[in-house]
Write a protein that binds this DNA or RNA. Structure first.
Lengths: 334, 334
DNA sequence: ATCCTCGACGTAAGCGTTTGCGCAGAAGAC
DNA sequence: GTCTTCTGCGCAAACGCTTACGTCGAGGAT
């Protein structure tokens, strides 16, 4: 910077002001300095600027799994939304319990960021406290976290939509393959989607058959196993709602291997509208994950700027997408 | 820090040394300072430290699409490998041509990172030059970039493996659905996999039928369309190798809709071993994407530390995974 | 007892910016 | 023409660390 200043015949203070867009510089000088900096391919050091300024133009994004479809889409949305703000993204992944603990212990993002966004990361009360202690705003994307701003979908409604679709088609024995988290800490989604399932049945005047609700590990394997269990029942269901599309995929595989025709003998509906749901022709409840991410991105910008004035709770709608894996129940043999 | 120093009754220099693990402090004092800092929940400001030290303990990862399976897995590997180094990850996404141009124009990572890793990002010669001008080491993950360290697979071999598998099963009319990039800049993978395809045919004493090589946009939709085109041929193939699993998924959808039994009437093989290849029972050539990412992560650590002494070229092997979408050709009607 | 060595620590000079304050000189009011 | 008000700019003090160099005292060698 000193170099630029010298060549421009001004002080470094003026260069700083010119480059940062601060007032107190004539347009002529500003332009001259700008072009000079360009020629010298000079950029201000973000670190030094942050030091002097105090705020640091970066946000941390914390996600349980970078590679997983849901988290990745969310991250994508966040990054996209932040793209033309001047915020950079510092990425942290906390896959296992151990890593999470360590993350909250060391808080490596500490003093490095102006805000934090968690992607659907369930945390303990103690961790929540430590987070608040960090002194920066926190945004939750894909869930809720105390009073902090969040963006999410209504999981109860999603479960309801999926279930209602099956009931409307005439099904009476409807099962649910629900997910259990891979952590000790609970995600809220499974219980809420289950609630939606239950409520939909009640609305139709039906009771929940405990045999028809199975819990499996999150993922397509879990879905496959869940379906196996349901098929082995003395009175199997005629339709099943899966916690997620991934689990539905697993369920479909089981059905294919068991040579159960879909949807002739069994209807399957997922939740998510995974990129490959279309490929597999899966009926599902669409949630706009990337849009949630973008919304979360906007939220943190807002929160960083004005300390967070607006009502920072966003709930995005979900829509049923009917494809080929659902249909009327098989004829009763009555 | 001044605070800690005062309470400990030492100078800030000593605190700095104690906390950073530098020599010149007695173990007793170090321990005292450490615990004091702990109590005050004090952390050194990374920014200030970087400023003073000159190097900045961060690497930038640049990816075309955070949400896409391949890039996301790669990123995951990188992040994982960097997890217990003291390098933080700054994430940049450049989806469109315009964004890429802007990225290389502004080089926002400039002066912020000690190294850059590009995830399978094709760049122009000019951009390459600008990158080198940045003065930090660059690692390419999932491709090659001049003399820079890289990690990748042998795409020619992958194409060969997929094709050879079909030939070994007895197929003689084998097609390929290849990908065209979504950018003007060429990826190397499509032409290399095609070369593998060609070579395998030649090895078997067969010629490439130009009609049987179709080019489509990357993605499952492209795969679907490619399959349609192949089916509409007067003499359709009996087997097809898809550029990627995603494209194979699309092809499978077309086949399902056209009621062409797989693999009875048509064999399909992909490349990648996508997470859902198993669900769809797709025969494919496995490449360990996350392992490539991890390798890339190790590479940048190494490069950051000792300026890059080792031979920094890694090529990971691929393996054929036989599942249910391939089989012998249908009987000749001869 | 004297000199040297060495380890533990303090002093202070940066690192590359931003920004409050002060100071000229030009423009406007009278 | 003088007096005020801006405007454009320079000076220098932070910002929160790291680190070369200097100091001081304890211990070992002689």
């Amino acid at each position: 910077m000193a170099d630029v200043a010298e060549r421009a015949g001004v002080s470094i203070a003026t260069v700083s002001r010119a480059l940062s867009g601060a007032p107190g510089v004539s347009e002529a000088t500003r332009a001259r300095i700008r072009s000079l900096a360009q020629d010298l391919s000079y950029t201000v050091s973000p670190d030094a600027a942050r030091l002097a300024r105090g705020s640091n133009g970066r946000v941390a994004v914390v996600t349980p799994d970078v590679a997983h479809w849901f988290y990745a889409s969310m991250l994508d949305g966040i990054v996209t939304a932040l793209h033309d703000s001047d915020l950079d993204v510092l990425l942290y992944e906390v896959q296992e319990e151990r890593e999470r603990r360590r993350f909250f212990d060391e808080l490596p993002a500490r003093r490095q960021v102006d805000a934090l966004v968690l992607i659907a990361l369930p945390i303990s009360a103690d961790e929540h406290r430590r987070l608040d202690l960090m002194g920066v705003p926190v945004v939750m994307a894909g869930g809720t976290l105390g009073e902090h701003p969040h963006v999410r979908i209504d999981d109860v409604a999603a479960g309801r939509q999926a279930t209602a679709h099956l009931l409307a088609a005439g099904h009476e024995r409807v099962a649910m393959i629900n997910a259990t988290g891979h952590w000790t800490l609970e995600y809220a989604a499974p219980s809420e989607r289950l609630r939606g399932f239950t409520e939909a049945l009640h609305d139709a005047g039906l009771e929940v058959d405990a045999d028809l609700v199975v819990h499996q590990r999150w993922g397509s394997t879990g879905g496959a196993e869940g379906m196996s269990r349901l098929l082995s029942l003395t009175r199997p269901p005629t339709a099943v709602v899966a916690f997620s599309d991934e689990m539905a995929f697993g369920a479909l595989r089981t059905l294919r291997r068991a040579a159960v025709p879909v949807p002739r003998a069994m209807s399957v509906v997922g939740i998510d509208d995974h990129a490959l749901a279309d490929v597999l022709d899966l009926t599902t409840v669409h949630q706009a994950v990337d849009e949630q991410g973008r919304e979360a991105g906007r939220l943190v910008q807002q929160v960083v700027q004005d300390g967070g004035a607006r009502s920072p709770y966003v709930t995005l709608p979900t829509q049923l997408v009917v494809r080929g894996t659902t249909g009327p129940p098989p004829r009763r043999l009555a």
